[in-house]
Design a binder for these strands. Structure first.
Lengths: 332, 332
DNA sequence: CGAGTGTATGTTAGCGACCACAGACGGTGG
DNA sequence: CCACCGTCTGTGGTCGCTAACATACACTCG
């Protein structure tokens, strides 16, 4: 910085002012300084800056299940939004065993690093409970959580998403609507089950089939075969199936194909996620879009608000139904 | 730190020595200092430390395709190894368009941040070319690249992996061995194609079928159907198929099932990756294990070596063949 | 027993930026 | 004409830590 100051014929303080876009700098000197900076290829030292401002310009992301579509894309959204806001993103990936100790450790590392805020992308409810018991001295935003006195939550409105799916099927005339859910230890899975139940109840209907998968196409396939069983298509337990993600829907489609069950002729299917290949399935999948990137963006926004001292407020991202070709009125 | 020093009745420098495990500290004072640290919940300020040591204890990871199994797991491995080595991991995720500008920008941010080293996890060869044209003033390790004068490369020995797969099939007696590859713009895909060709040539055999997929189960399914065509099982173009990843192998299995082609009765299949569900496919998939976590670990090791001033040296992780139930001698 | 060696600790001086304050300059108004 | 004020710029002091040097003391050895 001293070099730049000398090259521009000013004091280091003036250079600092230019860097921080301070108003009281004459255009002429400002230009000179900027030229000197460019000539010397100068970069301001983050450590020194952090030392005095007490801000690291870094956001810590605590994540697990990064091989899954949802968490991976949320991370992408967070990273992009953080970058645009001028923040660095530090990551702590959790293994399968998400224990209090692991979380504590990861959070501790973030504190050591001096992150300005933390985003938690862990889809298991237990994590939130652990988080509640911890006191972190920086703003914290958790994906999938509703607002709380301890931290902000930003979530896709799963209830709304589930309702969109089920109501779409109800409007088509279906009365026996089954659900293939995700693993019970995922927040998203349980809230979709609830939404399904509630929408059914609101229509005065009881539950039809409920099966549990593990998000994989394979588990969808097995569930599909199980459902098909040995019965002819007209005698299935349900005329429509709400599947908790597109991967599993893919598996179900395949299973039904093998079993000679026509989609949407015999059974209608609605997926969830709107993964990139959903339009290319056979037939193209009716599904619910989750704006993961938007979710990530909201997390960062919530964090930025918290930096400004704004109070705790939960954010909700609204999912949307995308109607393609796997839904139709029931056969009867 | 001054508080800790006062609490322990020593100078701040002694505290620093304890923190840095300096040898010349008496056990008694060391214990006192540690107690004071624990009592006060003191954490050393990373920014101040970085300022004077000129090291940020941070490694930047430049990654793309984070939704794919390989890159995602490599990232996990890198993160874990970095953590164990006491480094923070800062991430820059690239979108689909991997241009020179994007890469330059991401690298620039890492420089601003003052990272100690960079790991590049981008499976497209164009990236490496861009990298070669850039001069980065910290050690850089690229996954999937062979060693180079500009940076270290750490890669799974794809050639070896491909050879293991093909030779296994050759040993079983297959002579017409096809390949379903990944997209041509992936390093991993092209090297597996080469390995397949070379192994075939080494056995004095020519190419059989070569098809290109996009890593997805769906593309494997389509390729499988295409291969099956309308011919009876005994007249296929090949008696064995080397599939470039397990996802696609899953699709092929399904297509063959539908087409009435028995695996491994009519056709043997070898996958690649050994994804967690490979053993649970029907039949359990013979495949090639890639130790992604190990790959990540090696990257960090290479970086640590570079910090020590060690010269450029490429690392290679050896894949292994895992024989399960999708391979058998040819029918004839 | 005094010089030499080694261990344990304290003191000082930065690392590179930002902040608060002080000074220089030109313009305005009483 | 001088006091006053706003704009621009420069001078220290400071953040928390570590490296280099300085000091104090104990122990060995010729």
């Amino acid at each position: 910085m001293a070099d730049v100051a000398k090259a521009a014929g000013v004091s280091h303080q003036t250079v600092s002012r230019v860097l921080n876009a301070h108003p009281n700098v004459s255009p002429a000197t400002k230009e000179q300084v900027e030229k000197a900076i460019a000539d010397l290829g100068y970069r301001r030292n983050t450590a020194a800056r952090s030392l005095v401002t007490r801000q690291s310009q870094t956001i810590g992301v605590l994540a697990s299940e990064l091989t899954q579509y949802g968490p991976a894309n949320t991370l992408l959204g967070v990273e992009q939004a953080a970058r645009e806001a001028g923040y660095f993103v530090s990551i702590a990936a959790l293994r399968t065993e998400v224990s209090a100790a692991t979380i504590n450790d990861a959070l501790g590392r973030f504190m050591d690093q001096g992150v300005d805020g933390v985003v938690v992308v862990v889809p298991h409810p237990g994590t939130l409970d652990v988080l509640r018991g911890l006191s972190v001295d920086v703003p914290l935003v958790a994906v999938g959580a509703s607002g709380d006195e301890w931290f902000k939550g930003v979530a896709v409105d799963q209830h709304q998403g589930g309702r969109l799916a089920v109501e779409h099927l109800l409007e088509l005339g279906h009365r026996r609507i089954g659900h293939l859910s995700g693993p019970a230890d995922w927040i998203d899975a349980t809230s979709r089950i609830e939404a399904w139940r509630d929408a059914l109840a609101a229509a005065g209907l009881g539950e039809s089939v409920l099966m549990e998968g593990d998000w994989s196409a394979e588990s969808g396939y097995r569930a599909g075969l199980r459902l098909a069983g040995r019965r002819p298509a007209g005698e299935l337990d349900c005329t429509a199936l709400f599947v908790a993600n597109d991967q599993m829907a893919l598996g179900v489609l395949r299973a039904f194909y093998e079993a000679g069950i026509s989609v949407p002729g015999d059974v209608s299917i609605v997926g969830y996620d709107d993964q990139p290949d959903a339009p290319y399935l056979i037939p193209p999948l009716t599904t619910v879009t989750q704006h993961f990137e938007e979710l990530g963006r909201r997390c960062i926004n919530a964090l930025l608000e918290a930096f400004e001292g704004a109070g705790v407020r939960a954010g909700v991202v609204e999912p949307e139904l995308v109607v393609r070709s796997t839904t139709a009125p029931p056969a009867g």
